[in-house]
């Protein structure tokens, strides 16, 4: 059985990617199970989706503990513990990473020996409109790495999954997916091997424990402290950052701060200030600003700029 996990951020199309690959497997005659996994849905938060594909009916269910292939659409997720990108990887697990850096660099950085294939980022950083095609590109690359899915099945799967969105969107996704498929086929010399099932003899015994009785002072689900949400840096979910150009800001100060669904724009000295620790990058403010003073900038660019500014300052 092939067990494949897709990691990305809410909005990057990981559910779609898993469905494209799932349908491609299905068209190749495989039994398939695919599913997205998320909590309270939110843009930019780490999410994952998974696929199982086998020649016989699949009884296994739920999260994939030991993947054969891990596909990561956003390399900023790799160091994030909450994203669990590397969870359960085994020696032969292939990692497919959308990243400007090489597989060798990542192997060294993560101190792992796994085959790592990178899919270079292609211009999306400059054009935010391209971001939404990442999913199809990842599905295409994954199909390429697997080596058992034909170009035709991939194209057909994209047609089935995205056909209802109209010819223009379909064509763009198809082009991106097939380009990634071809690029990976040409460059990558890795082999994704199907993992087996866990034998019943011998097996690693689960470390079960008897839950001890504890009185209600301990065992009731209560946190009495306030402001706990401040501790959660939801700013890490951002893929795009709103940046205020103060030369254009007319200081009306209520429009952006009122429309911000997370209440992270405050007004100081009659000027709006964004709390980047908690701004999730929904870009509602960009759309609402009457003087178009707020731009949407890719998070990576914004971080590089801040780094440069900090460097100058020190």
């Amino acid at each position: 059985m092939f067990r494949i996990r897709f990691h990305g951020r809410g909005g990057q199309g990981m559910k779609t990617a898993s469905r494209i690959l799932g349908t491609a497997f299905f068209l190749e005659g495989y039994e398939v199970q695919d599913a997205p996994r998320y909590g309270a849905e939110r843009r930019g938060a780490p999410i994952f989706a998974y696929i199982r594909a086998d020649r016989k009916p699949i009884n296994e269910r739920g999260i994939i503990a030991g993947p054969d292939l891990v596909v990561v659409a956003d390399d900023s997720l790799v160091p994030l513990p909450a994203a669990g990108v590397l969870q359960g990887i085994r020696e032969p697990t292939v990692i497919l990473l959308k990243s400007c850096e090489s597989g060798a660099t990542w192997r060294q950085r993560l101190n792992i020996k796994n085959p790592i294939v990178t899919l270079p980022e292609t211009g999306e950083a400059e054009d935010s409109a391209e971001l939404r095609y990442i999913g199809a590109a990842c599905a295409g690359a994954a199909a390429g790495v697997l080596g058992i899915i034909s170009r035709e099945s991939l194209a057909q799967a994209i047609q089935e999954e995205l056909g209802r969105l109209g010819e223009a969107v379909l064509a763009k996704n198809r082009a991106n997916a097939l380009a990634s498929f071809d690029a990976i086929k040409k460059s990558a010399a890795v082999n994704v091997t199907e993992g087996g099932s866990i034998p019943a003899q011998p097996y690693k015994r689960p470390a079960w424990i008897d839950l001890p009785f504890e009185d209600a002072r301990i065992s009731a689900p209560v946190i009495h402290a306030g402001l706990t949400s401040v501790e959660v840096r939801t700013g890490l979910w951002r893929t795009m950052a709103p940046v205020i150009d103060y030369s254009l800001c007319r200081g009306c100060w209520w429009v952006c701060s009122t429309f911000c669904p997370d209440g992270v724009i405050s007004v100081r000295d009659n000027q709006p200030v964004i709390d980047y620790d908690h701004c999730k990058g929904c870009l509602v403010c960009v759309a609402q600003c009457p003087s178009h003073a707020i731009a949407a900038v890719p998070e990576k660019e914004e971080q590089a700029r801040k780094k440069a500014v900090a460097g100058e300052a020190s």
Binding site: G22, F26, V32, Q33, D34, A35, R37, I58, R61
Partner: peptide
């Protein structure tokens, strides 16, 4: 929920 509701199977 999830295990069937959001899971695709043939």
């Amino acid at each position: 929920g999830f295990y069937l509701s959001f899971t695709r199977e043939p």
